[in-house]
Every structure is written in C-alpha cells, then in structure tokens.
C-alpha cells in the first residue's frame, strides 16, 4: 500500500463542487441555564472553494466554535443552510489519548475505520517524517512538546481522509515562537496534502499569513462584518507590507465591533 493518505482525492476530483464549504444565512441559538435565548450566530453566509483555506477571526464568544461544529455536522443550524463535504474537527486542545503512542494516536481515525492496530500504526508511522516527527512514533504524548503534540493531532485529522478540515484555534495554546513555526509547518503540510480548511483563530496575523480568505465576525450574535481576500503568494512573511496592510484592515474591523459593543 502506498503511504498516501487515505482516500486522498486526485486534484481534479478535489476541485469538484462538493468539496467546498457553503453556509447560507446560518443562525444558531441556545438556551442558557436560566432558559434565556442566547443567539450565537445570526445570518452568517460564508463560502470556501475546494482547496481554499478560510480563516474566521472574531472576539471571544462570537460563536466561532459553533460555526465549526455546524460545518462538521455536530450541530444543525436553526435557520439557513450548511452544505459541506464530510468534515473532521481538530479541537483547540490536542486531545491526544495519553495511553497511546504518538503513532497510535495519529492512527485513531484508521482504527475507527476498522483497520487492525498494526496496519493502522504502520500507515500513520510512515507519515511521521513528512510531518517533522520522525523518531517519535513510539513516544507517548506526555513525552512530546506542545508543538509536536499539535503535529500529531493534525496528522490524526489528516488521516481521517475527510476533504474538509475544521481547525479550532490549533496553535492558541503555544508560545509565540512555536506558534510561528507551526504556522509555517501547517502551510507546507497543506501544500503537500491540500484540503479545504476552516480555521478559527483569534490571531489576525495567523489568519492573514495562512488563509485565502479571512472572515471577521462580530461579537455575539456572530455576523460576518468583513470579508478579506488574501490574494498573496505563498510563503508569506508576517513582515510583508501587504500582510501588514490586510492585518490592519481586519484589526480595524474587529476594533469597530468592540467600540460599538461598548457603546451598546
């Protein structure tokens, strides 16, 4: 068996209509403990073409995580529609299982799909070098650094074979230096293994460096208040004038929301 990722679509197939993300007028509300209605998202329309990376930035509590769960099909919208190919979630924390080795953790999706332990592990382990993890196949999560744990978690996400990845602040818990490293690493990993990605982050710079399109959400209820196309060549430097300019636009959009929120 080649060490290619499971059911990795050919480039021509990946461009097919069903591999993108399309949200149309999506609203979602919850009842809090006292029964009051809490509107998390309201009238959100977002689109990511197949193979695109869509970054969603917004203040805390703007329904970003709800958005990802809608895309993954873990929740259904109260209004509007969500059309998306099968998606896999990479939660904020790596959530590696402490009793499994790194290779076994990465192979979790393959085990769930019914592959026997040995074959699943071998397929995951073969990709460790490509992910910058060579030699750590047998290490347990407690022996890995935060950045390496995120790499294993990302490999676990990739090996699900799903065409859409939902990354929920994947580098939020890392220190600034490791985070910058991991952003570069993610960009190159996605170049080798292209997927449609929805990336939720509160780091505007991260969004601009990585994404094809950045959507800025307002505070709750989350609405798209600004959508920026990032038509810049990769790899992008965070010191690049165009990157800084887009970052400024996104920050201004965010700042505008917080001042209206303060006024309200």
């Amino acid at each position: 068996m080649p060490t290619q990722l499971q059911s990795r679509p050919r480039p021509s197939q990946r461009r097919s209509e069903g591999d993108g993300i399309a949200l149309q007028g999506v609203g979602r509300a919850f009842r809090d403990r006292r029964g009051a209605l809490l509107r998390a998202l309201s009238g959100v329309s977002l689109h990511a073409a197949p193979g695109e990376l869509l970054a969603v930035v917004g203040p805390s509590g703007c329904g970003k995580s709800t958005l990802l769960e809608l895309i993954c099909g873990l929740q259904s919208p109260d209004e509007g529609s969500v059309a998306c190919a099968p998606a896999v979630l990479m939660p904020q924390r790596d959530l590696l299982l402490p009793w499994l080795s790194a290779a076994d953790n990465a192979a979790l999706a393959l085990r769930v799909a019914g592959l026997p332990r040995g074959r699943a592990r071998a397929r995951a382990a073969a990709l460790f070098a490509e992910m910058g993890l060579d030699g750590f196949q047998g290490a347990h999560p407690s022996e890995l650094s935060g950045g390496m744990r995120q790499r294993v978690a990302f490999l676990r996400t990739l090996l699900s074979g799903k065409r859409v990845l939902c990354l929920d602040e994947p580098f939020g818990a890392l220190d600034a230096i490791t985070r910058a490293e991991m952003q570069e690493w993610l960009a190159s990993a996605l170049q080798r293994e292209p997927r449609t990605v929805a990336l939720v982050t509160h780091d505007v710079e991260e969004a601009v460096v990585l994404a094809d399109r950045v959507a800025v959400l307002s505070p709750r209820p989350g609405r798209v208040i600004e959508e920026l196309e990032v038509a810049l060549p990769r790899p992008r430097a965070r010191t690049d004038a165009a990157v800084i300019g887009l970052r400024g636009r996104a920050l201004r959009a965010l700042g505008g929301t917080s001042s209206t929120a303060a006024a309200a």
């Binding site: 769960e69 979630l89 939660p91 085990r111 799909a113 699900s160």
Partner: peptide
C-alpha cells in the same frame, strides 16, 4: 472524558461503542 474528545471521535465517524472503546473505557 473531555466532551471535545467525543466530538472529535464523532467527526471521525466513531460509533458509540468505538467512543467507549477508544476513549472512555481506558480513560
């Protein structure tokens, strides 16, 4: 067991039994 862990497993198409087997029982 972390609720996010179970969400993750659901997006990996794990059944209830698989969630038990891979995450909850060992935990």
């Amino acid at each position: 067991v972390d609720p996010d862990q179970l969400k993750l497993l659901r997006t990996l198409d794990a059944s209830r039994w698989q969630a038990l087997r891979f995450a909850e029982l060992p935990a």
